[in-house]
Design a protein around this nucleic acid. Structure first.
Length: 281
DNA sequence: AGTCTTGTTCGACT
DNA sequence: CAGTCGAACAAGAC
């Protein structure tokens, strides 16, 4: 569910919610497997009395820099954060909550239970992810070079967080449509000119996603909502994702849904040909 | 009842 | 080693 733009939106909202400087006075775990490596009990003991120094993003991970540790949170499909003031409220999908020294409770809700909290001492024990699309290491040259080094369909390559971190199923389909590249094209057969356009498309779709505070596809609890419960608006800007049967905004052809790497994949069959019969200049 | 889902990891296989 | 594929995780919408 949440990809880079959604996680970035959540990080910004948490940072703006005066969470920085607050102390975690108590943690409660309602679903043990949400906590990775540590037991729920060890986690609660370890995080207790730690101060939140900063909140950042690493790929799709949220990073809470604490006084003695680093807390990494991955939302996977349905994880979401929100605040509540009352201790007595009951939320059916609540997995973890943090009591703060200002009386607020930061709650973590996760319908499908795939979300993970990883509390470690140093960043070297944290998740190892690839280049962030908004870091200065992500350049046209980097993308062109790494595509040449692999012989894999472009879509699963872009979804692999070890190479580039933060792109998920929605934004990858959007970026490939924008760059006019079929998701099954092999990485090492993508021409330098196309790679350059793809670079711009990746930055563009992610930046637009952030500007629109994320993509919320539906109204149910399984969808993305921000910390304050707001929907994003990027779903109104999508060109292909879940638009199968509708006309392509560029050429009018009907958007098709196919399966690539076991993921629903949306393409314009005219704009994104699988084989390049004509060499474009 | 059966299929699908915005993420990731694992093992089997080629 | 590199890449593909299906399953697993888990719950709910359609």
């Amino acid at each position: 569910m949440p990809e880079l733009p959604e996680v970035e939106t959540i990080v910004r909202e948490l940072s703006n919610s005066s969470l920085t400087g607050k102390t975690i006075v108590r943690a409660k775990v309602f679903w043990e497997r949400t906590i990775s490596v540590l037991s729920a009990n060890d986690f609660s003991l370890k995080i207790k009395n730690q101060k939140i120094k900063a909140i950042k993003r690493l790929g799709k991970w949220l990073v809470f820099e604490l006084s003695e540790s680093i807390l990494y949170v991955h939302l996977r499909m349905t994880g979401k954060f929100f605040f509540s003031a009352s201790k007595d409220e009951f939320y059916p999908h609540e997995r973890v909550c943090l009591y703060l020294n200002d009386g607020r409770i930061l709650r973590f809700e996760d319908q499908r239970k795939f979300g993970r909290w990883h509390l470690v001492d140093t960043a070297s024990e944290g998740p190892q992810v690839g280049i962030d699309p908004f870091s200065k290491e992500f350049t046209e040259t980097f993308l062109r070079t790494i595509l040449q080094k692999h012989n894999q369909a472009i879509k699963p390559f872009l979804l692999n967080q070890k190479h580039i971190s933060g792109i998920g199923n929605i934004y990858v389909d959007e970026a490939l449509w924008e760059a006019k590249i079929h998701p099954l094209r092999k990485t090492n057969q993508i021409k330098p000119k196309e790679s350059k356009i793809l670079f711009k498309a990746i930055i563009n779709v992610l930046r637009k996603g952030i500007e629109n505070t994320g993509t919320t596809l539906g109204n149910t609890n399984a969808n993305y909502f921000s910390v304050t419960g707001r929907k994003g608006s990027n779903q109104h800007q999508l060109h292909v994702f879940r638009r199968n049967g509708l006309p392509c905004a560029r050429c009018g052809s009907i958007i098709k849904k196919i399966t690539v790497a076991q993921r629903g994949t949306h393409i314009c069959p005219f704009c994104q040909p699988k084989y390049l019969f004509l060499q474009k200049t």
